[in-house]
């Protein structure tokens, strides 16, 4: 307490113009970000809320704005993120555990690490073209839910790996040493101590990844997701649409009514995102509390 006060008084003495200016600039940056975000949200809500209705959620796209809905796009998006999560979480977490807990520090590991970091910055359309060549054509999965989901997995995998690695690194090495000292094997240490301790961090990464997958349109267009489907995908082999594509499609129309629908679809997309985030926060709260060092 007293030490804090000392530092505080010291700072008052050294309060130069530059220092406070820097503080103001940082504050300004924060408020600009918030203002932009609030502006966007308000615009979307004002335009979209009048169009929000049960019809919107339960109908197929239509040329008549009053009857148009996002059902196939919403279902398509849920399929996509579900399968993307299913594939990318085990693979991504597995790769991160290997790199952090098992792999020896070698030039090979450094090379892999460097590549993963670079892959996280590759524009998603590049993955889309890769997905078109690999999944749609070479593996002849056609324009199916599974081809779309695997392409999105490629997009988000680097994010899952990198954030999981960060989370694993944040687990104190004393935990591992204590576990080994008690005679635990490496498997027991990783599975029972390190991974549970890293879970909140892993969840953050997973949520970021899923949010990214939910918002991506470009790679889906490349693999051939369609804008109009008059059915809800029922299996991995079905064709699909996705919310971002539906939004894009409506926003492009000449008729004003479709622009309102586009905003309403954005509200739906945001709602899905918020629900997912809430889920992750709950998981983190539940498992985060158990861990006390």
């Amino acid at each position: 307490m007293s030490r804090n006060a000392d530092i505080h008084s010291l700072e008052i003495k050294r309060s130069y113009l530059g220092s406070s200016l820097f503080g103001w600039l940082c504050a300004a940056a924060t408020y600009i970000c918030i203002a932009v975000l609030v502006g966007l949200l308000v615009t979307v809500l004002v335009n979209g809320v009048p169009w929000l209705s049960w019809t919107l959620l339960t109908s197929f796209p239509s040329r008549d704005p009053a009857k148009a809905g996002v059902l196939p796009a919403l279902a398509g998006s849920l399929w996509l993120i579900g399968i993307t999560a299913l594939v990318s979480i085990p693979t991504g977490v597995g790769a991160a555990v290997y790199l952090e807990e098992y792999a020896n520090s070698s030039w090979w590991r450094k090379l892999v690490q460097l590549n993963i970091s670079n892959l996280a910055g590759v524009p998603s359309i590049v993955y889309g073209i890769l997905g078109l060549g690999l999944f749609v054509r070479a593996m002849s999965l056609e324009r199916s839910v599974i081809a779309g989901a695997l392409t999105l997995t490629l997009v988000v995998l680097p994010i899952v790996i990198l954030s999981t690695q960060e989370a694993l690194r944040a687990v104190p090495s004393t935990i591992r040493q204590a576990s080994y000292a008690l005679g635990a094997t490496r498997w027991q240490t990783v599975w029972l101590q390190v991974l549970p301790a890293a879970l909140p961090g892993v969840m953050t990464g997973v949520i970021l990844a899923i949010a990214r997958a939910l918002g991506e349109a470009a790679p889906l267009v490349a693999v051939g997701a369609v804008a109009f489907v008059a059915f809800v995908p029922q299996s991995l082999g079905d064709e699909f649409s996705a919310l971002p594509l539906q939004i894009f499609n409506w926003a492009e129309r000449p008729q004003e009514e479709f622009h309102g629908l586009a905003s309403a679809a954005i509200v739906v997309l945001l709602a899905v995102l918020i629900l997912l985030n809430t889920g992750a926060v709950l998981v983190r709260a539940k498992y985060g509390r158990r861990i006390k060092w």
Binding site: R143, A225, A227, A230
Partner: peptide
Amino acid sequence: IRVTVGLS
């Protein structure tokens, strides 16, 4: 019959 329309 399932008709799908894309816009690539």
